[in-house]
Lab assay of single mutants.
Amino acid sequence: MGFKLLSKLLVYLTASIMAIASPLAFSVDSSGEYPTVSEIPVGEVRLYQIADGVWSHIATQSFDGAVYPSNGLIVRDGDELLLIDTAWGAKNTAALLAEIEKQIGLPVTRAVSTHFHDDRVGGVDVLRAAGVATYASPSTRRLAEVEGNEIPTHSLEGLSSSGDAVRFGPVELFYPGAAHSTDNLIVYVPSASVLYGGCAIYELSRTSAGNVADADLAEWPTSIERIQQHYPEAQFVIPGHGLPGGLDLLKHTTNVVKAHTNRSVVE
């Protein structure tokens, strides 16, 4: 069995187990497998329904001669939608809004960016022009300005110390501490036991640490421990890039980060 097929099978099995364990909360999309990078042309966006009122959005972007996937989250909030992270750029984010209108038909009224990198804030200006209120932590807003990236308009308070959590509509926002970046936030959907790890969490097929220019490698494993301790009931975990899975993604990420750190020390 090929690795790609095995990865998709694991996603399907995880979703099936969740649907059985929580039949009222989960209505997993039966329309197909989780979209992969090879299936999404740059400039297009796919939506994948995880649970009743919960979707991931998947886009792709060219970077350094390669094409990478990027995940975000959409959560229903009454007759409105909360968006977590842009679709990595203005063109993708405009396509995301169009796809949401086509498939869901509810307005996106608020959006949260989970850290300051372009795959999370690139497209904020498109959201703002569409009347979406954009939010991020003060740290993310400051770092985005320093980096020359787009800056969300509103500040999220109460997320300055490791372990801080605040309720934001249908989700809980959690600051686990520094990891992929010093400002990275985690998003949890309690009604569906869905954990969105953003770039602080890796997919299972990833074996290298990737972009760690703004990471705190020493603190990252401790931050992941905080996530595990705060959300032990999480059933569906979405990484910032690639295929979702279960809580095993947290341990896998820790292993990859520690291996990278150990290699760096040896070198």
Rank of each mutant, 00 (worst) to 15 (best):
G78Q: 10
V132L: 05
D119C: 01
E147D: 08
R263M: 09
L156V: 11
V265A: 09
A59N: 11
L250R: 00
V42Y: 14
D85K: 00
N71I: 03
F26N: 07
A234D: 01
V108I: 12
S22V: 07
I84L: 13
L96T: 02
W220P: 00
A178Y: 08
L243T: 11
V132C: 05
L5M: 11
K8T: 11
S223E: 02
G242L: 03
Y135H: 06
G131T: 07
E267M: 12
K258L: 09
G43Q: 14
V54L: 06
T261V: 11
I238V: 06
Q49W: 08
A94L: 14
H260L: 06
T60W: 06
D64K: 14
S70W: 00
R110L: 12
A213H: 07
A51G: 13
A136R: 03
T222Q: 12
K8G: 13
R110S: 06
S161V: 14
T14S: 12
A51V: 08
N184E: 01
N92F: 02
G32S: 08
E101A: 13
I84C: 02
V187M: 04
H260A: 08
D77M: 09
L5A: 11
A144Q: 04
S31N: 09
V189N: 01
R46D: 15
H154P: 04
R142F: 12
A66H: 07
S70G: 05
I104S: 00
Q229G: 10
E172F: 05
D118I: 14
N71V: 03
A218R: 14
A200C: 11
H154F: 11
N71E: 00
A94G: 13
E267S: 11
P138C: 14
P190L: 06
S7R: 13
Y68N: 10
I151S: 12
G122H: 10
G148Y: 14
K91Y: 14
G169Q: 03
I58G: 03
H115C: 00
G177E: 01
Y231P: 00
I227P: 02
V121R: 03
G105R: 14
V146F: 14
I238L: 07
L217S: 11
H230L: 11
F3K: 14
V42T: 13
G123P: 03
V237F: 05
T182V: 09
G89C: 01
Y12R: 13
S31W: 09
S62P: 05
H57N: 03
G158L: 11
G122W: 12
A178T: 06
I227A: 11
S56V: 13
E145R: 12
R120N: 05
M18I: 06
I84H: 00
V42C: 13
P35K: 06
L159C: 03
T134Y: 01
Y175A: 02
H115Q: 01
A21F: 06
T134R: 02
P69I: 07
L156H: 03
V132D: 02
L159A: 02
F168K: 03
A130G: 14
H230Q: 08
R167F: 11
T109G: 12
P138M: 08
Y175P: 01
G65S: 08
R76K: 13
E219W: 05
V121D: 01
S161Y: 06
H57K: 00
G240N: 03
V257L: 06
W88P: 00
E44D: 14
V42H: 07
